[in-house]
Design a protein around this nucleic acid. Structure first.
Lengths: 344, 344
DNA sequence: TTGTAAGCGTTATCAC
DNA sequence: GTGATAACGCTTACAA
């Protein structure tokens, strides 16, 4: 009952270690008879080859790394990341890859960061946001290790990426509010200087323009994807802009904060004020009131990212690809036809 | 600019490979002079030792696995898991360990499960819930790989575990409601047949008994830690038990669902009905109204689990330890003095 | 203090 | 089809 290795298995099966290796790797050129003998022993002693040794010999670890920046506890817990990771994980497992999730944070020493991307360790890397992308790409530029980004990044056109169509999603949301009769529509957006935000802003502006509504620059704010930001901004606006009757939020978490601000200012949703979010997180349907939102295929995003990455790992010559996913408007209870005045 | 290995570095530094190895591992018995030469080359060529080869030689991978069951998207996204994982991750990184997060699900084939626990791959494992525990312990019983459980499990007294004091937390919550004057207090609990639930139920019952209130068995429900469960149960109770004026929820997610049910039934919180949650998730302060809850050190739980595990890995003879963390009542806006009647 | 050599457990090449 | 044998890149006795 000792720890088995390939040699012992070979001995027990009365073959050489090469035969065992071939059987285990489904290589041709091994007699049915020998194969059976080996399989029998493997089964009997429950032998499993040592992954580490295999990695050393094949130069591939079947491990892929997922990197995201540590963005404070609040934003981590919002469900978006978990779902994204779940998509990645399950696709990887199906294709025989392990995956490890790491957080990048600026408070970590460089040594630690090196450690994360530790050489010869990962077959590929998925970057979940921009902070992480720059750092990773720079560190890995000379190595041949494939990278996939979640969220397009114009700075790296020859790297694979997956994203939802941010323009389209936002356009749909704002168009929907306009169709409900709203004209004074605020917009709270996420991270500044990110293409994603830029596209969403354009979607917002264009929808307004096309409806003949002049966008009011004071009605938009850019910050971060947090409840805190939604709360703070909406709190300010609730007092400052009594004419505002609807709000687009660039994430469900922002919407969650905004909803709370509205509640605290005694503005009832959707009777007096409509709110639409973005993401379609599982929790969005449990907000008060259940949130109308632009659902994106978060799980699918992760799945697709993993697929692109593994394809790239297994076929290095494959061309970089930018995949766009479709957003979908999910109507719930946080939106309604505009009401003449906020104070009924 | 070729790929470096220890031999090339040795050659460049005019020493033998063992000297390089010693320098890299901070072993004694290497002259300052040689050390400097090696370090210089390492720096100059940015050499990093190959982790895989090192693992093969040392028989330790410096990787630890975190296993949790795939519990549906809803419960994954609630923030508790992310926070727990973050605690684990950061402690591991500090101690030089990688960590990989895996989901166990019954829909996966056994082969895949084998794959997850793939032999010779992980130095240790942290199990985040019971479904996973049994499976893992069984698979790993013969190997010497350390395990730490998050959540005590009486079935495995000789395995390390970390948990919050569930009895105390629940007792505090219910006691608080009683002090507010509530007498008809419901309780929605999580997973059945888990020690955690048992302890929380006891905390609930004891608090009631000590206040001279006869617990009403119809006032408790056991289900799962989801918004859905809170919504469903509270919806039923809202109609069935008009005398109920307060509710303890075994998780903030359950409370979130309950809050929605109350909203939909036009019962206002906290004026007519008080709710207290459990966990103290970041989002709990953004619920409507902001939730009074029993905060547990979720991040700290993960951190502690990782600490226990790594201690065990580095010192196998260390005794198993059951760590209890302290819960804390956080008072916000979802609770208030009891009101005579629900229909004001 | 330094270097040599023997592992670690695989895969891969190449005779047979 | 099969089996030596040489990698893979590192650690670690042990000898010098």
């Amino acid at each position: 009952m000792e720890k088995l290795n390939i040699d012992k298995v070979a001995k027990l099966a009365h073959v050489s270690r090469s035969v065992v290796s071939r059987v285990l790797n489904n290589h041709p050129n091994v007699s049915e008879e020998a194969k059976q003998r080996v399989l029998e022993i493997v089964e009997k002693y429950n032998y499993r080859p040592n992954t580490v040794a295999r990695s050393l010999a094949t130069r591939s670890t079947y491990q892929i790394g997922v990197l995201t920046s540590r963005i404070g506890e609040e934003s981590l817990g919002n469900g978006y990341w978990s779902l994204l990771y779940l998509g990645i994980f399950e696709e990887c497992i199906r294709r025989g890859y392990y995956v490890s999730l790491s957080f990048y944070s600026s408070s970590m020493t460089d040594e630690l960061h090196e450690h994360l991307l530790n050489e010869h360790h990962l077959d590929g890397i998925i970057c979940l946001n921009e902070e992480v992308t720059e750092f990773t790409v720079k560190k890995l530029s000379e190595k041949e290790i494939p990278i996939v980004l979640v969220g397009h990044n114009p700075d790296y056109p020859d790297i694979c990426s997956v994203d939802v169509n941010n323009y389209e999603g936002t356009y749909k949301a704002v168009k929907y509010l306009i169709d409900l009769g709203h004209e004074n529509i605020g917009g709270i957006f996420g991270d500044q200087n990110v293409q994603e935000t830029e596209h969403r802003l354009r979607g917002y502006t264009n929808a307004l323009n096309e409806a003949g509504i002049q966008p009011n620059s004071e009605f938009t704010a850019v910050g971060s994807y947090t409840q805190h930001d939604g709360l703070r901004t909406m709190n300010r606006w609730a007092k400052k802009f009594p004419e505002m009757t609807a709000l687009f939020c660039a994430s469900d978490t922002i919407a969650m904060g905004a909803l709370l601000a509205l509640y605290e200012n005694n503005i009832s949703v959707p009777e007096q004020f409509s709110v639409v979010g973005f993401d379609g997180l599982p929790i969005s349907r449990y907000l008060i009131p259940p949130l109308t939102t632009i659902a994106q295929p978060t799980y699918g995003k992760g799945e697709k990212a993993a697929r692109l990455l593994i394809d790239r790992i297994q076929n290095k010559s494959k061309k970089a690809e930018q995949v766009n996913l479709k957003p979908k408007l999910v109507i719930r209870k946080s939106t309604a036809k505009v009401n003449q005045t906020r104070t009924r």
